[in-house]
């Protein structure tokens, strides 16, 4: 009986490891190429473990004279930070209203947010492009920011609302008795209690903005304003791209979102909130 159990455990772990190896394989390739010499990346037969290791690509991508990665990074960071800060702030306000206050049109608003959550992105690129170009926002990062805020807002409000629903009302009433204004109760009582959920809203919005290809590719033309995704992709389409640099840049690009996501999951674990992320 015990032996049988051990065997079935081994079989289980074998399959788990197999699954992980398959899922991780493209990442292994990414890491391997970023550490190879250029000659080896295009050599045949391909290798997984580099024959000669080098960190030259990681050094090169941070050298602005040969690779504009830092510029792209700055643009992406600016867009993603503004989007996520605004999404969290508006999420707190909107989430509070929908969670705590009774008012006319509350259900309609809930439904509307859900509808926007489902239908957005590419469906409105034509009018959005025409509108924002007309008001002179062509080739600006702010045009991308505006579109990304609206993209992330419904989920941000939905996430904060769900979390605020779990906070007991008595806590707020205590604050009101102590003389806090309504805004005061939101920012002094509700917000400090919701840090884990607000962090995940922030991370969600940051990831969506950080990943964006569509809006950046519509609005941004000049090379000094390109974000990482479209910037790297535009380099890729030139004949002299270097695989090692692309992979090193990809790894550095992935790092912030992976770290942020892991961190937010750690925070959430105590008070599990529902729902995944859009993607």
């Amino acid at each position: 009986m015990n032996k049988k159990k051990t065997l079935s455990n081994i079989w289980f772990y074998f399959r788990v490891i197999l699954l992980c190896v398959v899922l991780l394989f493209p990442f292994v390739i990414m890491v391997s190429i970023s550490l190879k010499t250029t000659a080896e990346t295009i050599g045949f037969p391909p290798t997984i473990i580099p024959r000669s290791w080098t960190l030259v690509h990681f050094r090169d991508i941070f050298n602005p004279r040969i690779f504009p990665f830092l510029q792209y990074f700055k643009n992406s960071l600016y867009i993603a930070l503004v989007v996520s800060v605004v999404a969290v702030f508006l999420g707190v306000l909107g989430g509070y209203a929908l969670s705590r206050l009774r008012f006319r049109g509350r259900n309609a608003m809930n439904e509307m947010f859900f509808l926007v959550y489902m239908f957005s992105g590419i469906l409105l690129i034509v009018p959005l492009y025409k509108m924002l170009v007309t008001v002179g926002m062509r080739n600006t990062r702010e045009a991308v920011i505006a579109c990304m805020i609206v993209q992330t807002l419904p989920t941000a409000i939905y996430m904060t609302r769900s979390y605020f629903d779990t906070i007991p009302k008595e806590l707020e009433e205590a604050g009101r008795v102590d003389g806090l204004s309504r805004m005061g109760t939101i920012f002094r009582i509700i917000v400090p209690l919701s840090v884990s959920s607000l962090v995940s809203v922030f991370v969600y919005a940051f990831m969506i903005a950080w990943n964006d290809v569509l809006f950046a590719s519509i609005f941004i033309d000049s090379s000094e304003l390109l974000t990482i995704p479209i910037g790297l992709n535009s380099l890729f389409n030139t004949p002299d791209y270097i695989w090692g640099r692309m992979m090193a840049a990809s790894l550095i690009t992935s790092l912030p979102v992976v770290v942020m996501y892991a961190f937010s999951q750690k925070l959430i674990r105590a008070g599990q909130i529902e729902g995944g992320i859009k993607g």
């Binding site: 991780l24 990442f27 390739i29 990809s250 690009t253 992935s254 979102v257 996501y261 993607g279």
Partner: peptide, 27 residues
């Protein structure tokens, strides 16, 4: 590990796929 491919920006994933499926030196 499972969630990784969902979190990492698609452009980064796509570079790796372009390399793996390259017709000359892809693995």
């Amino acid at each position: 590990i499972i969630i990784l491919s969902y979190v990492v920006p698609s452009v980064c994933l796509i570079f790796s796929w372009r390399y793996m499926f390259n017709s000359i030196y892809g693995i």
